[in-house]
Design a protein around this nucleic acid. Structure first.
Lengths: 208, 208
DNA sequence: TGTACATCAGTGAACGCGCGTTCACTGATGTAC
DNA sequence: TGTACATCAGTGAACGCGCGTTCACTGATGTAC
């Protein structure tokens, strides 16, 4: 508790974001309502308007926070892999899924809530910061591919993003039923592995 | 017009599904309401209950129809590629994206509306029929991989599904902003290409 | 061909509900003297 | 240390709205004779 609580909540803004995340996580972006978030924070719906412009603004704030965390996680993962371009890239890919798994509410707010990434310049900036890590790693990695058969770095960063997102949506959520017998982490790991082998960045007989 | 229209609509069930699809396509699964769908079909909300149990049932019907079409498309694509396992597989992958692009309402109802694939046995059956095409193609294709380094067919069918779904969600929708400079078709095509190369199913210097 | 009747797809009024948002207000907090 | 006062985070009542769903009904359709 950073501040005391009483008639004045003390930390309502954070509490509301937390409540929103919990609701989103439990019931999907559809299940989230301003009123219910207020109730979870122990506060009248009207109080929300002291801190946010409205319902959408609250979701955007959650997404903003999520992108911030995401960016840091990605950057950390990238650094951890350095100076090896390959290790950085793989590490970033793994971090993507790890984030989605650890912070499903944030992930949904960021990518499935319907709010635009370009809603505000600040949101766009932090989102870009997060996604550009993967781009940078791809860029670096693509230096190791012979120039004549090298695909644009944006393209294969896009491939990895798509694969990661697809794994998250289809296999890392409970709703799908027992659709797939593999843990999503393995699925992504092997998928990226095959992909990098296809680019000639991993020797074909390397088993790791 | 298969039947006449008047006091009795004649084809309300279909009209409601169509209205639902249009609304879903335009405003996302959240934006869809039973009442609005009824209005689009030129009918009182109460009339919906002659044909569906309720809101969810209507969405499920749309998804059901979608899976039927999807299954046929996938099967057709598969056949078209035969007897080459590789051609069948690639064709099915392409069909996946083509379906999502051509029938966004159906796609959303099927994969993003929150209704469970196991809602009814019939829905599960048709969904399974659609998805098993890719599985079968993967199975067949995996015969061409040396047994000792062959990944389970379910796994690489899952990879392709994830990649396809990710491309659809991230890059084949308007909402993302100008996030990616490549047409989604190219993105998926090249992605699958690299992946298959990684499996050793396409020679490394094949440019196609 | 015409009449009587069963069927059933649609109406329209009504319901209770929770939503997002507004407003004048109140009472806790922090500061100046 | 104590009092007066400005600030402002929260209240709670109210609003209009569209929602999903129900119900008794009505009127078009198709069939039997």
């Amino acid at each position: 508790m950073p501040k005391k609580r009483g008639y004045h909540h003390g930390n309502l803004r954070e509490a509301l974001i937390e409540a929103a995340l919990k609701l989103i996580e439990e019931k999907g972006p559809t299940g989230f309502t301003l009123s219910e978030a207020a109730k979870h924070a122990g506060v009248t719906p009207a109080a929300v308007y002291r801190h946010f412009e409205g319902r959408e603004d609250l979701i955007a704030a959650a997404a903003h926070q999520g992108f911030g965390m995401f960016a840091e996680l990605m950057e950390y993962a990238y650094e951890k892999g350095q100076p090896s371009a390959l290790a950085s890239f793989e590490s970033a890919g793994r971090a993507y899924l790890a984030f989605a798994r650890r912070h499903p509410g944030h992930y949904i707010a960021m990518f499935e809530s319907g709010i635009s990434i370009n809603r505000t310049p600040e949101l766009a900036a932090v989102a870009n910061r997060a996604l550009s890590v993967l781009e940078r790693a791809a860029e670096e990695l693509s230096q190791h591919i012979p120039a004549d058969k090298r695909p644009p770095a944006t393209m294969f960063s896009a491939h990895i993003r798509a694969l990661s997102h697809g794994v998250v949506e289809l296999f890392a959520r409970g709703n799908s039923g027992a659709n797939c017998p593999f843990p999503p982490e393995d699925l992504l790991e092997t998928g990226i592995g095959v992909y990098l082998r296809g680019l000639g960045l991993i020797p074909a007989d390397d088993d790791s």
